[in-house]
Design a protein around this nucleic acid. Sequence first.
DNA 1: TAGTGGCACTTGTATTATACTTGTCTACAC
DNA 2: GTGTAGACAAGTATAATACAAGTGCCACTA
Lengths: 243, 243
Amino acid sequence: MRRIRYQEIADALRTRITAGEFAAGRVLPSESELSTTFDASRVTIRKALEVLRDESLVDARQGFGWYVATDPIRQPLGRLATIEEQMASDGIKPERQILEFAFERAKGRVAKVLGNIQVLRVKRLNLADGEPFALVTVWCPANLAEHLSRADVERSPFYELMNIPLTGATQTIGATLVEAEDAALLGVPMGSPVLRCERITESEGGKAVLLSQHVFPAHRTEFVVDLPHAAPSMAPSGLRLVE
Amino acid sequence: MRRIRYQEIADALRTRITAGEFAAGRVLPSESELSTTFDASRVTIRKALEVLRDESLVDARQGFGWYVATDPIRQPLGRLATIEEQMASDGIKPERQILEFAFERAKGRVAKVLGNIQVLRVKRLNLADGEPFALVTVWCPANLAEHLSRADVERSPFYELMNIPLTGATQTIGATLVEAEDAALLGVPMGSPVLRCERITESEGGKAVLLSQHVFPAHRTEFVVDLPHAAPSMAPSGLRLVE
DNA sequence: TAGTGGCACTTGTATTATACTTGTCTACAC
DNA sequence: GTGTAGACAAGTATAATACAAGTGCCACTA
C-alpha cells in the first residue's frame, strides 16, 4: 500500500522538527526550497506543512515563512528525558521502598534551608528492575505535607504530590565514598564511590519548600547537563571549589 | 534552517557583550561601523540593537552612541559564575600547567565524537593558589587548532582560543575512584573519589568541535546546577542510568 | 581666558526599491 | 482525490539613501 506523498513529507518534517533540528522560533526552509529538496511541487509541500499546522507544530506568516510553533509544554520534552521516562521507555519498572516516614522538628542543615519548623522526613530507596540505584531523603514543611500518607510517597514521586506550584530548583552534585549504612542499602561494597546530590526546590517567590539529599552508586549512574550556550571557562560550568 | 538576519546579529552582539568584550559604560562601535563589520545595512543593525535594548542590555543616546547598560541585576540571569570568575572574586590566582601537547590521529572515543581525523590533544593541570584542582584533557580537530601554540593554551582557557562560535555543550558528570597516575598529579591519596566529567562542545549546526575530559578531586569540588523549572521526577533532572 | 561657531560624528526617522516569502488561484494530467 | 506547473497578489525583511537632530571636540575670536 502506497502512502500519500504529502503525508510522507509531513512525517519526514515532523520527525526532523520533534528531533529539535529546528529550534523554536527559528524559521524553516521556504516552501520552494523544500520543494527542491523533497523533489515535490510547492503545492504538495504546502499540504504537508498544513498538516503540521493542524497539529499546531508549526505556523506561518505571509511574507515571512514557516516557523516551529513555540509550545511551552513541548519545551521540557525537548530536553533530556527524566529518569522515569527513560526507565519507562526501556521497559524498566521503577519501584520505591519507604524506609522512614516521620514528622519531626527541623535541625541543622534542614533548619537552615527550610527554617526552624516542623517537617516531614521521608527516606526512600529507589529501585530499577529490583536493583537499588538511589537512596533519597526528602524533607518537607509539615504544613505542606499533612495530606500525605506513607502509601502516597511510596506510589508517586514527591514532586507530583505537592499541591503548590514548584518553580525551580538548585542542585549540588559531589562525590564521596559510600557510608557503611548506605552501602548495605544500595548493595555496593565499602569504599565504593557515590554521587551525592542535594536539591533545594523552590516555590513561587523563591521560597524553599523541599530539601532532598540523594545518594547514587557511581557505577550505575551519571548526570547529563545540557548547556544551551557554552560558558567561556576552562571548567565545566557550574563547578565550584569547596573548602 | 534559516534564521532572521537581525536576530543572528543580535545573538552575536549579545554573546560579545555578556562575555565582557565591552566594559559597562563603554561605547559600542557605531551603527555604520557595525554595518560594515557585519556586512548588513544600518537598518538591520539597528533592529538587532533594539532587540538588545528591549533586553535592557544596551541603551543609546542620540548623537552619542550605543553603550552597554549598567545593570548589575542582570548578571545572575547570565547564569552561574564560572569557576574563574569565582576565583577572581576570591582573590585566588588560577594557573595552568601543560603536561602534554601533541597532534595525533583520533581513535576510540575521540574518533567517535570528532570523527576519524587528525586532532590536537592537550593535557593540562589546573591549579588554584598552587593547589591542583582539575586535570583536563582536551581534543580539538587539527584544522581548528593550527594557530595554537603551547604557550597559548597555557595562558588562556581553550574556549577563548577557538575562533569559531561555540553554541552549546553537553556535559556528563560521574564519579569514580582516582587512578594511580591522576592521584599523583592531583596530589590525592589512592582510593579517593573523583568527579569525572566529559564535555562535548558544539559549534553552529550542532557539529562537535571540542571533546574534553575532566577529573576533579571530590573533596575540593562540587557541581551546582540551576534548574529553571523543576522536572516532575523523583530523581534530580539529568540523571541517567549507565549499564 | 572665556565664549562661540563650525565640523565631524553620532542616533533617530523617514522613503524607495528589491528580493524573497506565503496565500491563492487556474489549468492540466493521472 | 492527488499531484504538477505556473502565475499573480499580498506581506516581510533588508538594502540603499537621505535628512533632521543631538553630542563632542577643536580652532578661532573677542
